[in-house]
């Protein structure tokens, strides 16, 4: 039995979902636990399981209480929540502390600046840097996809160099082009569909992050490690053409 997973706390989220809390801060170690548990639930589902949603420090489990209710003996005095909780405790007890999931590595081509990244100049001047320096710092580190949310395929990334951390725009844009790469505080992210947004847009990737006709319907998943690399507008067009 492992010590870190037994500290997990299971809390009801309404009558049809629950939250497994695995920590309290954003860290690759806690993220790893969330991923391991998500995979285990996926491979060992219980009757009534609908789906699980990984977040920074927790895994939310959605289930149908009716199916859970009819999956146990009538004389058992146990509620659906208790039933699901005991299944999850059983899984948590099985987890090997040292288990590490590999996670995919994905490279993301980005055209920085110009019409593709209208806020690159602002970010550079905010930090008294050349735009090249911003690009260098943005492409230097490997970033971890902690979770996907806000919009379909939108990755919450951690690991950006803090030297280019920049506050959000005062005036959010009413519509941001999909593929736009932005900075908001210490976070960097990629817009997956056209939405309003206040992030500082420094570039754009030709890759489609949300592709509803494919499985999985998203390019990036929780647990992926990504690295940005700069390309030219001409290369951008080639990538676009290739993905058609």
């Amino acid at each position: 039995m492992c010590s870190c997973f037994t500290k997990a706390v299971i809390k009801p989220l309404g009558d049809s979902a629950l939250l497994v809390e695995l920590g309290h801060e954003i860290s690759p170690v806690i993220h790893q636990k969330v991923q391991v548990l998500a995979q285990l639930v996926q491979s060992h589902p219980f009757a009534g399981f609908i789906e699980s949603v990984p977040a920074y420090t927790s895994l939310t489990i959605h289930y149908n209480p009716k199916v859970v209710h009819y999956s146990f003996m009538i004389n058992q005095k146990i509620t659906p929540f208790q039933k699901v909780s005991s299944h999850l405790h059983m899984l948590l007890d099985q987890i090997d502390d040292k288990q590490v999931l590999a996670g995919r590595r994905v490279e993301i081509p980005v055209v920085y600046g110009g019409e593709y990244g209208p806020d690159l100049e602002f970010v550079a001047s905010y930090h008294n840097m050349a735009t090249e320096e911003v690009i260098h710092l943005h492409t230097k580190n490997e970033c971890l996809v902690y979770m996907v949310g806000f919009a379909p395929g939108f990755p919450f990334l951690g690991g950006m160099d803090v030297r280019i951390a920049t506050p959000r725009r005062n005036n959010p844009r009413p519509a941001i082009v999909p593929g736009s790469v932005g900075i908001a505080g210490k976070q960097t992210g990629i817009y997956s569909i056209e939405t309003p947004g206040g992030w500082q847009i420094i570039g754009r990737t030709p890759l489609a992050l949300f592709r509803p006709d494919l499985y999985p319907p998203v390019l990036l998943q929780a647990g992926d490690k990504i690295k940005f690399f700069p390309i030219s507008p001409e290369e951008f067009d080639v990538y676009k053409e290739m993905s058609r």
Partner: peptide
Amino acid sequence: RYGFQSYGVI
């Protein structure tokens, strides 16, 4: 549409 929330699909 269930089964895709982990991808941010509502």
